[in-house]
């Protein structure tokens, strides 16, 4: 089979299988039941870090975790699995307000460039931003950049 045909057939197969998986309902993202759940999952993923407290996102697909060392950590649903990271100084490049109830984090991590967090409550949103500012801001860089989406 000529290469262009093989690639075209391959991409068509990718689309068909992905559409089928979606149709079967395999696109649902994991949800946290409570803060204990978030702490347990974060601790399992990052056993070297001591998780102290967690705040859940509005849609429960993410949690901000406060660590014993003063940094923040993040637990985020990657489809049906979880991904956890600590957020040391300099790990967040910017926080954008996408809409009234969504924040976008731009991270200095090639393997996790941006994340969207659902936070409907204004107070909760401010707490997340504050926690991330306090924990992730490099002292030499000044305050974290906040951008409003046009």
């Amino acid at each position: 089979m000529p290469l262009p045909v093989f690639i075209a057939v391959g991409l068509a197969a990718c689309a068909v299988i992905a559409a089928y998986a979606h149709w079967l309902g395999r696109s649902a993202r994991q949800t946290l039941s409570d803060t204990e759940d978030a702490l347990r999952l974060f601790q399992a993923a990052c056993p070297d870090l001591e998780a102290r407290q967690a705040r859940l996102a509005g849609d429960r697909h993410a949690a901000l975790v406060m660590l014993e060392n003063g940094d923040a950590g993040l637990l985020y649903a990657m489809g049906s699995k979880w991904m956890a990271r600590d957020l040391p100084a300099g790990s967040i490049k910017a926080v954008k307000r996408l809409s009234a109830n969504r924040l976008r984090l731009i991270l200095a991590d090639y393997t996790m460039p941006r994340l969207t967090i659902a936070l409907a409550d204004e107070n909760e949103r401010e707490r997340w931003i504050e926690a991330m500012e306090n924990a992730a801001r490099p002292p030499e860089r000044g305050p974290i950049e906040r951008k409003a989406t046009a």
């Binding site: 391959g10 197969a13 990718c14 299988i17 992905a18 998986a21 395999r26 696109s27 489809g79």
Partner: peptide
Amino acid sequence: YETRDTLTSLIMGTGSV
């Protein structure tokens, strides 16, 4: 199985060819 994970795997396979 998870949709996006599966799609990524399949695209990686096609790209590897």
